[in-house]
Amino acid sequence: MPYLALDTATTSLSVAVGERGKLFGEATTQLSRNHSVKLMPMVENLLADLDLDPTQLQGFVIGRGPGSYTGVRIAVTAAKAMAFALNLPLVGVSTLDGLARHGAVSDALVVPMLDARRRQSYTALYENQNGFFVKIQEDKLLVLDDIIRAINSRMVVRRLDKTKPAQVLLLGDGAENHRDELQEKLGDKARFATSPAQNFVRAAHLLDVGIPLLEAGEVHDPATFAPEYLQLVEAEAKWLAAQQAAKEGEPS
């Protein structure tokens, strides 16, 4: 029985169906500015093409961000409803995993970058270790200089291991939009996608990450499941800062 994966956190709208070790099918577009309109018809069409009915699914893997706030909520919310309606398990995984795993066969340090404007990207670090593609730094929102610092810091460790080339594979629109600067500062360590086919979030990659979790029973509660935004809303951040300032101003 297959699992369904969805991701709407970036400009990529991606849907995949598969089991452990077997991808039945995947549909992805990258021009959609309207994931709300396109997502469910895409799910319906993919399942129909595979001669599947929603009741034949056995679980959901959802890209829970980081990315566009409004975008990420589309798939997360639809999945919360489907998991509730069909009484099926759901697990949220990082949208960055869906991008990074284009580099799963690479020996380089793999750094997915989702552009978050103002020279910032949502990013994480991945590397192959003993044949496993491993996330070695959790999702963060970083400015370009801090991303370069994190890469160089990891390079120090990698230099100790002769099997690991001093290379970094930079993926995603964050890498493309800052390509010149990354190239200049990282020199010949820097590698980029060799094709646009390696620069977007794939739901098939989310299945690779999510299916083992679902099969191990490591699932989210659909009722409380929510996106991972990595940022507070600006009004909330200001309010919290004001509360903190008021507290510090109080005589003890």
């Binding site: 009741t55 909520r73 589309i74 919310t77 489907m82």
Partner: peptide, 14 residues
């Protein structure tokens, strides 16, 4: 969009 996405997920599933 939250209500709409939720309703569509439910209605599609059932």
């Amino acid at each position: 969009l939250v209500g709409v996405a939720w309703a569509k997920g439910l209605c599609f599933a059932k």
